[in-house]
Design a binder for these strands. Structure first.
Length: 241
DNA sequence: ATATCGATTATCT
DNA sequence: GATAATCGATATG
């Protein structure tokens, strides 16, 4: 069971894929305009093994197969002229997707523990990208919780699903083997980016998180006042008694 | 409430 | 051999 969450987003019925031209631009522009858009996992990979007790009805494993979440925090990486970018040293086997056509998933593994998701930007040959740092879950929260191996006991716990680049990748079952190089502009794909008409509202710009090179460049973009932005919260969400 | 630290591996020097 | 676009657990005020 997942209790009601503090949300300022509505789930719209219609989500249309973002087209490739959107990504064929400067990553700073793409990052800004991706705020408020939606990340979609077409079908949750894991399936609930519901074992109903005697006389009980099987659980709701068939519903909520599609995962959706609103993009609330991103960072821009500028390609070879950005010391903090994976593309800084040029083309390698690991970062090849960054140099390919725009709108494709670049997934990398970090700290021996976590995957992180980017989308390639700029025309082919230029290696700009946008890193996804936090999402606001909209649908499929049960499957996300299962993928994250956590239980949701209150609104504050919902934040732990997708608030952070490693967390959101785990919630969406994103791995390098499965998703690196995938086209994110097609709703027929396993993972894609969509627009449901949500107005982004006020945007804050800050330095990027967790890097040692070019630490003061202002390339992190967040939705102001959105509780799902990563990092520590000054005031906790007051759960209803 | 903030601070520190260990986990664990692909990638690069 | 060192480091990394992180997270969660533990310790402490």
């Amino acid at each position: 069971m997942i209790p009601g969450r503090m949300s300022n987003s509505q789930t719209s019925a219609q989500i249309r894929p973002v087209d490739r031209a959107f990504f064929a631009r400067d990553p700073r522009r793409v990052a800004r305009e991706l705020l408020g858009k939606v990340l979609v996992r077409r079908e949750a990979v894991r399936q609930e093994a519901v074992q109903p007790g005697v006389g009980q009805i099987a659980g709701k494993r068939a519903s909520n197969r599609r995962l959706t979440a609103r993009i609330v925090e991103v960072e821009a990486y500028l390609g070879q002229e950005d010391p903090a970018a994976h593309a800084a040293a040029g083309l390698t086997a690991r970062n090849a997707v960054l140099f390919g056509p725009p709108g494709h998933a670049y997934v990398y593994f970090i700290y021996g523990n976590h995957y992180c998701l980017n989308v390639s930007c700029e025309p082919e040959g230029q290696a700009g990208s946008v890193l996804f740092r936090a999402l606001e879950p909209l649908s499929g929260l049960e499957a996300m919780a299962q993928a994250r191996s956590i239980e949701i006991h209150g609104p504050g716990d919902v934040r732990k699903l997708t608030s952070g680049p490693g967390r959101l990748a785990e919630a969406f079952d994103i791995t390098r083997a499965r998703d690196n190089g995938c086209d994110l502009t097609s709703a027929a794909g396993a993972l894609w980016l969509g627009d449901d008409g949500y107005p982004a509202g006020r945007i804050l710009v800050t330095p990027r998180v967790g890097i040692t090179k070019a630490p003061d460049w202002l390339l992190r973009f967040v939705l102001a006042d959105n509780p799902f932005v990563s990092g520590k919260r000054m005031s906790r969400i007051t759960a209803a008694a």
